[in-house]
Design a binder for these strands. Sequence first.
RNA 1: GGCUCCAUGGUCAAGCGGUUAAGACGUAGCCCUCUCAAGGCUGAAUCAGGGGUUCGAUUCCCCUUGGAGUCACCA
Length: 494
Amino acid sequence: MKIRTRFAPSPTGRMHVGNLRTALYSYLIAKHEGGDFLLRIEDTDQERFVEGALDIIYRTMAGTGLIHDEGPDKDGGCGPYVQSERQAQGLYMKYAKELVEKGEAYYCFCDEERLASLKTKVSDDDDAVVISHYDKHCLSLSKEEVEAKLAAGVPYVIRQNNPTEGTTTFHDVIYGDITVDNSELDDMILIKSDGFPTYNFANVVDDHLMNITHVVRGKEYLSSAPKYNRLYEAFGWEIPTYIHCPLITNEEHKKLSKRSGHSSYEDLLEQGFLTEAIVNYVALLGWSPSDNEEIFSLEELVEKFDYTRINKSSAVFDVPKLRWMNGEYIKKMDNDAYYEKALPVIKEVVTKDYDLIKIADLVKTRIEVFPDIKDLIDFFEELPEYDVAMYTHKKMKTNSENSLEVLKEVLPLFEANDDYSREGIEKLLMDYIHAKEIKNGQGLWPVRCAVSGKQSTPGGAYEICEIIGKDETIKRIKKGIEMLNTACEAAKEQ
RNA sequence: GGCUCCAUGGUCAAGCGGUUAAGACGUAGCCCUCUCAAGGCUGAAUCAGGGGUUCGAUUCCCCUUGGAGUCACCA
């Protein structure tokens, strides 16, 4: 039997990483076995629909490479793939009525007020949680009463009719058999008063009609799974394989939600993460391969993915590790791809006519995310204000006096020099250092400080001088001499 | 609060009765080195607690504790 999985998002905004991972796992499970991966849009809540959210879904799927075989834009014979369109065909109502006839569902005319009276507050520490359990009030309505209300146009919903005794057991690949008392099963709404199906109902109907074999979804749905089973059984349909994925949480171990912010795929892109790194990292939240590798392309994931190795416990979304992984991907990038990403960021900071490629090369192993570049290279554009104390470095054996000496002696050499290639500068400086018989650091530290104004820089003195060129190098060394002069004189006076 | 699930270092995790309890991120130190990275090496750090079962439990069972999810005309 061919595996068919589906990703069924609601068009309510950006896609947060939990959804992305669900989509990824669905895709991987299908593709690992050469099965089909479908995209279905669950837009049964008209109020929550967000303009443009559909585009985000398509863009995310295409961007991450999770290409669907069937979907709203790719008919595979199970369409339409948008639930509002299916609703318009009266599809869900038809199935709901079938259930009513079987006694597995019933019309409910209870108004908001009555429903509210059913709600009970339960104190959960400081947060007051409101729960409700429908009391089957309308189940006792006679056929005639129902007909009369229907004819009178009284608003109604259709509810699932769950037994109050006995137990229901369902099976999940990851969590095993789970049994609950039927008394726990609320008579959930199947068809809302606006005629739309609820997520729960549409899901079951569509998964069956679309021949979905493996239902992949988040663990937050685990508690509603028994009610699904009752629906399948009521219809006499085959129950698909359930694969509930563990939650992805924030640092506080709470479920990652849209409100957590900065946790959607697009947020991450805006923060400078590469989609390959995001996909790779997210794949490893809740799943691990049998070997020790960690860096995987989507193709490799397809090959390696084994859903029986998915974990049970939730995983914290650890940004530092994502950053590390992103850095690994940056290092692996070929020049074209790297420059395409790096140069625009560099241009934001450096407007001077410098060799931006050289700057890009300098920072490649020093960043984890592209925006990191900015803070690293700002000194190229303009020499920052700095403290002369920087020239004093214990390990380099430098201080204000000998730094001043070095800069003074090196200045004429720079002025006389015309070879500002990296090699040229190296020769100039090393010849000087050898002649003076000092340690490399003693000569190079003051120069690098003068030329960058920073304690630490990507690259060393040679590279920086090469990039900023003769005029700027001389200008900055003079500035250093000037500052050290005043500092040394002030010291003498004391 | 009811129900359900989960429990190996700070984080991701391997382990599926007998191991010196992998590996990765992070972290500490060292090497390299003109700084910062990268790279190399080394270290610290984990089986929540208590009962069983067993010749032997991280591993199987139970309880406790802790955490999470869920309890909508949202998905």
